[in-house]
Nucleic acid binder design. Structure first.
Length: 500
RNA sequence: GGGAGCGUGGCCUAGCAUGGAAUGGUGCCAGUCUCGGGCACUGGAGGUCGUGGGUUCAAAUCCCACCGCUCCCA
């Protein structure tokens, strides 16, 4: 063993493990500017898969892609005061054009609401122009100086930001909810990461939004990670940006808006949740390479028959799967096994002289390291089933982790103990003061206030009942539903956790 | 905002106390040999010791300043 592989164990030094995995598996590299990274081809291929899946859903639900400039004049960015105050500390400013100082500073977009809405206001005149539903695949820049982490917290990140304009409040609400459910589907069914859906508290919501919907996942170190957000902006932006339309009633109305986004942070979550001591483990539905074929040959005698069989298998699988034939001659099979395991390819097909002779191949799973030998005629079925099985067992494993690290409690003492290990589900009075105090004393935030009135969460946790029961923290708690902190009567149930 | 530590071939690293030819591993290149779990051997290329200044016959080593990075505390 040498330092080509990951040299620390995931459960012994998680932070170091994460860095080694993302670097050594060839996802990314550091850039020469603090807080910035370079996404290498293998990492970008994962982003392309996420983008492919998401883009399809966006288009199916009536959204169109467009492009916006990176620079936003200060006068525009500051037009919505609360929004500006929120982003100000992390804005990069362009102050010069060549040698000349600019009359007005230009922000490198931290997010595009202000720029997009200035433009939207020129496009919208009548209710017939609505709804306007546009998505941008781009990057955003936020100056992160402390505690940066590749993919999780970087000063520039790849993301998509959707921006919509609607004629009614209800329509905007539905849109915000719909996009969250689309995100949830992508994250759970493709990335195999279970999430908890609900509202952000006022303290944690997007600055300028009426409310923010969020999806929260739990990382192996017990910290929560925000996976995607969808904001109902109400009329908070349409007023300052003057997005008005003439309704059927012949009167002018301010429009109702949403914005929503997911970023390459999802790749970071993927690494943390599914990875192991050997490196990455990618769910088949999102893996850029689902199957790698590795030939094993001794001398020239068997070499040709092995290579031929590998090519046949490759051709057979290529139509239905993303498959790669590793025919490099300068590396030994053992080296290749380790290399592809580091890169997280879900399934490996090994073909050697023995397999050629017996009319078989060896299939090796990345998730549990099991190897099986299957006859050539069963190959297609076996591969299909195994990939599905890997997809589901990865989700299952992540789900069991989330479940076993989500604690329900009625006492603050227990709260402080559990908060070190995952989500704590507790009653909360709804006051920001309690929220701040808890943050101060324990380092934990309210990550999500779960939905109680809809079907979004019913796909998993809630359906199983028990600890996830909607109206109660725990079964039979009707007698004590007071706030975990101030002991006043509680209006809500909230999930607390330390966050990235 | 406060404190501590670290910068040596692509990467990791020895050397620094007590100044005197820059150590080893990995990776890279060539060849031979191998290949069912990171093969082995031989040879080779690759270094402004973060930057600038100072002390000294002599500085990776001691002193000063700067730059960069990491960690801890608020």
């Amino acid at each position: 063993m040498n330092d080509l592989g990951v040299t620390v164990k995931k459960d012994e030094d998680f932070a170091e493990w994460y860095i080694q995995v993302v670097l050594k598996s060839n996802l990314l590299d550091y850039a020469p500017i603090k807080g910035f990274i370079v996404l290498k081809p293998y990492g970008y291929a994962i982003w392309e898969r996420i983008r492919e899946v998401a883009d399809k859903r966006f288009k199916e639900s009536g959204h169109q892609n467009a492009f916006l400039p990176t620079l936003i004049p200060e006068s525009l960015l500051s037009k919505e005061a609360e929004h500006f105050e929120g982003f100000k500390p992390e804005v990069f400013w362009v102050t010069h054009a060549g040698n000349d100082e600019l009359g007005e500073r230009l922000a490198l977009r931290p997010t595009s609401e202000t720029l997009a809405y200035e433009i939207f206001s020129r496009w919208i005149r009548s209710y017939r122009d609505l709804p306007l539903k546009i998505n941008f695949w781009n990057t955003a820049l936020r100056a992160e100086i402390k505690s940066t982490k590749p993919l999780i917290r970087t000063s520039e990140f790849l993301w998509q930001e959707g921006h919509t304009v609607h004629a009614s409040k209800e329509e905007a609400e539905d849109e915000a909810r719909l996009m969250l459910s689309i995100y949830k589907e992508i994250i759970e069914e493709y990335l195999a990461i279970p999430v908890i859906a609900g509202y952000k508290s006022d303290k944690e919501k997007f600055v300028g939004a009426d409310y923010t919907l969020t999806l929260e996942a739990l990382m192996p170190d017990g910290r929560a990670l925000q996976m995607g957000t969808s904001h109902n902006l109400g009329q908070n932006f349409s007023r300052p940006f003057n997005i008005k339309f003439l309704g059927k009633d012949g009167k002018e109305h301010y429009a109702w808006q949403t914005s929503w986004g997911i970023s390459w942070r999802l790749i970071g979550a993927l690494v943390m949740i599914h990875g192991d001591d050997k490196g990455l483990v990618l769910p088949p539905r999102i893996a850029p390479i689902q199957i790698v074929v590795v030939p094993i040959f001794y001398g020239d005698d068997s070499k040709h028959s092995v290579i031929d069989k590998c090519k046949n298998v490759y051709a057979l699988l290529r139509d239905r799967f993303r498959v790669h034939l590793d025919d490099r001659e300068e590396y030994t099979p053992g080296y290749k096994f380790n290399d592809w395991e580091l890169k997280g390819v879900p399934l490996r097909v090994e073909i050697g002289p023995r397999d050629v002779k017996q009319g078989k191949v060896v299939l090796a799973r990345r998730d549990d390291s099991r190897k099986v030998s299957v006859g050539d005629e069963e190959l297609l079925d076996a591969v299909t089933n195994m990939l599905e099985d890997i997809q589901h067992s990865l989700y299952r494993r992540a789900y069991e982790f989330l479940k076993s690290h989500t604690f329900s409690t009625l006492t603050y003492d227990e709260f402080k103990e559990h908060i070190e290990h995952g989500f704590v589900r507790a009653y909360w009075c709804g006051s920001q003061e309690c929220e701040l105090r808890i943050k101060e004393e324990t380092g934990a935030d309210i990550r999500v206030i779960p939905f109680t009135d809809d079907s979004i969460n019913d796909t998993d946790m809630l359906k199983e009942g028990g600890m996830m029961k909607k109206e109660q923290v725990r079964d039979g708690d009707e007698g004590d539903t007071r706030c975990i902190y101030c002991r006043r009567s509680a209006g809500k149930i909230a999930y607390f956790a330390k966050a990235y």
